[in-house]
Design a protein around this nucleic acid. Sequence first.
DNA 1: GTGAGGCCCCTTTTT
DNA 2: GGGGCCTCAC
Length: 724
Amino acid sequence: MALHLEQLNPEQLAAVTAPDEHLLVLAGAGSGKTRVLTTRIAWLVNSGRVSPAGVLAVTFTNKAAREMYVRLAAMLAFDPRGMWIGTFHGLANRMLRAHHREAGLPREFQILDAQDQLAAVKRVLRALGADPERDSPREVQAYINARKEEGLRAGEIAPADARERRWIELYAAYDEQCRREGVADFAELLLASYELLARNALLREHYAARFRHILVDEFQDTNRLQYRWLKLLASGGAAVFAVGDDDQSIYRFRGAHVGNMADFEREFGVRRLVRLERNYRSHGNILAAANALIARNRHRLGKNLWTEAGAGEPLVVYEAESDAEEAAFVVEQAQALARSGVPLSAIAVLYRSNAQSRVIEHALFTAGLPYRVYGGLRFFERAEVKHALAYLRLLAHPGDDAAFLRVANFPPRGIGARTLEVLADAARARGESLWQAVEALEGRARQALGAFRDLVVRLRAETAGLALAEQVAHVIAASGLEAHYRAEREGAERLENLGELVNAAATFAAEERASGLATGAGDPEGEALDPLNAFLAHAALEAGEHQAGEGREALQLMTVHAAKGLEFDAVFLAGLEDGLFPHEQSLAERDGLEEERRLAYVAITRARHRLYLSYARTRMLHGQTRYALPSRFLDEIPPGLVRWLAPRRPEPAPAARAPQARRPARAGAPAGGFRVGQSVVHPKFGAGVIVDAEGDGAEARVQVNFGREGVKWLAVAVAKLEPA
DNA sequence: GTGAGGCCCCTTTTT
DNA sequence: GGGGCCTCAC
């Protein structure tokens, strides 16, 4: 089959045909990383260096895994099914299903997504009588996940203070609850899989002997546990091929540990390092801007992208008066691009935080320009879908308390919070699941809960033997969900989503018949999972996959985080204001600014031909008008690469723009000659913008945002402030 | 037990 | 400004 090695550049070729030893590939943005990864696998297999079963390739997203699979299928003479290709979580899940007994899990253990996990944490807090004011469920959830991602169980942590002592207790109780209910959260998949390998020498040796080549994508995003997991799997002498870009490490807040790259070099004794620095994506000006920006970061492995493409257009910078005007600018320019023949789907609007999309969406909607927002609530996370899944989970495993609680009273059937509390107490006292504990109750509670249980039993009987999609459809109808949403005034969309869930089940079943991947049918290890349980696992692991309107011709809106790995002909990067991007909360963190800069680097390198950078002098944030300075990152881009679209305009007349301060100085009475919104210069703090004012005459004080110098209150009579 | 209004928070979030 | 969550009144 065609690998087209002759089309690779020398560095790519060196990586693809490297000998069987550990290798670190520093792959810059747009340097053909995925191609190298897949060609490497195909080359290894085709040249007989490894059998398909000896390959383990791991990514972070299902999308990346699927793309690798598809590309491999095109390069290989056979179906790549026998290889272990997937996400960390997907592969950990696969291993746990195959060895569930050794891992101490039921074969049909359910996977908790972040929402389910939060609900589970809340139940633990309640059961232990913890005060959610003092220990917020979200914080406890984050704490548990962070510890799991460090590979630590509750018993292995030394508390730093009283608060952590409480959290460790909650962690232990949470894990206990999960084990009792037969469920596993995302981090648990990895940790349990890691522990399985660490403790079970036989299994470890089996897998370590099996995998001869381990390939890891986006290595800079691995956390400590994932690193250790890989290390165990490689303990049998496998060659680890790690591809990453330290400059694109933007998930530290989720536990990603860039240090893994350096650790890998050291601990694995890596002798070869390949740098992919030739960029095939962007025009020269865009790359030069990206290079100049990222060069300001101190902790780098070092890399400079270059291209043979021309310089292209200069970057366009636009200063908008307000967020609304910035949105209007984006719409206008996007329309112009569309007229000149750029497909809408090749244009992206990127922003730092999700809240920024609203004003842009509003402008796009008004202009009648089709757009699509990525992120937000994903298909399998929608309430109605989760309700339907909860019924299905109860069919598969009645001991699933989380599912029980979610739908016992949905649609409403007279089982209130009080009743469920009584049931929970009974279950705890008897050491049983909620389902079992119904027996222990009496009177009205017993009757209502009994009726619910009968419903589930009936559903199970009625769906036995049906095809997966029919099972799903029947449960939606007979559970009362359908009737409930039909009666609801705004239930139409929810009904549509439930219909879509049936489609998703049908699609899943069809793909599963073809590949046998999710049920493990194609795998010699372990027993196969039934279609319903496989579908439930799929729903948890690939929550975002099922998005409506995927390939539609529409402008693409997303956060910079969500854009990683993607590319567009034209990119708008909106909201380049100090405090927003870089985000003010990042500045307090150690090396927070560097991570923000990497984020900006990721944003810039998404663009192929055109890049528009914009910021707004005023922005509605949390219901208040905020005044901001341009992002410091704009200053870090060499001026020669940039064209200011509407040159920084002179101060508009005050009347034209009467900005609303939180506590406006008395109307028409500027504080000591200064106005809110005005640009000023201070001899020590430099340029700033007045964001608030109070008093007048000799008492007048103004609050000035000096960007990186901070926000300060100054007495006008004393401070040497001058209009900019 | 259920639904409506008030209160609080508010970066990013591949799985 | 707005969504999720909780409390309070029926």
